[in-house]
Write a protein that binds this DNA or RNA. Structure first.
Lengths: 224, 224
DNA sequence: CGGGTCTGACGAACGGAGTTCGTCACGAAC
DNA sequence: GTTCGTGACGAACTCCGTTCGTCAGACCCG
């Protein structure tokens, strides 16, 4: 199995390792082969090196995934056109989209205050938009918190959906059957409202609209 | 290290294994020792058996965690007093609370349509409350979707917070320092709005209020 | 131009995880 | 008392993240 050792001089020149190429390679592996395949060994293999070499540039697997997340967030398009509410909605939608394109990445963002440079760029942009819209500072701050939470959650949900084995239609049909079979006395609504529960429509856009409308209707009350 | 084999007759009578005791033991281990300690081996050890024995009642670790999640959701108190909006807010808050009490459990709920019996009970209750409030079916269905997403996300965030090593104050101080050190030209808001960004107050309750207000202000538009 | 030093890459190994397989002890049935 | 089936379980397999010690190559100084 072992190829005999080849002088490094003899084999084709190799691009030097760096944090950046490791992170980008990680994203490639994640997108091409899924979350389960995202192991230190696999990433190293693609880079034609050993897993141990990665640890010079990356603290551990969590650190790598956090870096990958921020790299993905760096690709979010920042909107410039439209009213401030339209810009906000587009920015949120773009962020969800960016996260949902990489299985499992959104999960690492959950439960942590964002500290990545690109994540903070998105946050800063949101705060600017709120300021343009005349929203007071405290409400804007709390709103960005809430929106970031929604972005990670919706991103994770979308990603899970994109990666599912079954087609959405098959999966929905199965769940719907399960709902219908529940005891009607304990689950009166779930068994009855099938049509509404599974109705089609742009739920993602609606959710963002709900958040924006709700924020505008609800002032924050900081404790002094 | 190995104790010599003892006849099972000789050692104290053991409660028989069952899916239920395994799930409850899993929750105990999770709460007492954290997510990292929640291994099949550890759960089996607490039950004084081998890991292989668990697989008779549980498909795999994911199945176990899903069952633990539903068990946790079974302990959500369903409110009965107050206006429908108050009931809704309390129910959402109680659900977040239940999830946040067990590190990492909320993460398994993310990205999946709820199918557990107790999860569906909570959903059914929400739908009933919306119906009492005169919300149309489609909006109610989409709203429950959104609220469930928020519950899982907020639960995960709270749980991560509860389990952090540093005290909240220390952690916030550190992040705040980091924010302040960012280049002001690229991050004008983040560097400036520290006071607002870290302002205290009941953000969780505010977030729920935002969602409810937003839902009432935003009709769903299903595609026929 | 040559030798010494220093840095980064890497093979091998460690501990521990999830899961599977074959065996065996126990209780019930006849 | 013998047989039989069910469920518990020990051991092993594979693969993971991570660490340690070694070594080749690049660079610098004389």
């Amino acid at each position: 199995m072992n190829a005999e050792p080849v002088s490094r001089r003899a084999r084709p020149a190799k691009a030097p390792l760096s944090r950046d190429v490791i992170v980008r390679t990680g994203l490639e592996v994640l997108d091409r082969e899924g979350l389960d395949a995202l192991t230190m060994r696999r990433v190293a293999q693609v880079l034609d090196t050993g897993a141990a070499s990665l640890y010079v540039y990356v603290e551990n697997r969590d650190d790598l995934m956090a870096a990958m997340l921020d790299e993905a967030l760096g690709r979010v398009a920042l909107p410039t056109d439209g009213s401030w509410q339209e810009q906000l909605q587009t920015l949120v939608a773009n962020s969800i989209d960016a996260m949902s394109r990489h299985e499992g990445l959104a999960l690492v963002a959950l439960g942590g205050i964002p500290t990545g440079l690109n994540a903070l760029l998105v946050m800063d942009r949101m705060l600017t938009i709120f300021k343009e819209g005349g929203v007071d500072d405290t409400t804007a701050a709390w709103a960005v918190d809430l929106l970031y939470l929604h972005i990670t959650a919706a991103g994770a949900e979308q990603a899970a959906y994109n990666t599912r084995k079954l087609t959405p239609a098959e999966h929905i049909a199965e769940v719907r059957r399960r709902y219908a079979e529940l005891p009607a006395d304990r689950y009166p609504m779930v068994t009855t409202m099938g049509d509404a529960l599974f109705s089609a429509g742009d739920r993602d856009r609606w959710a963002i609209q709900v958040l924006v409308n709700g924020i505008l209707a609800t002032a924050a009350h900081p404790v002094p």
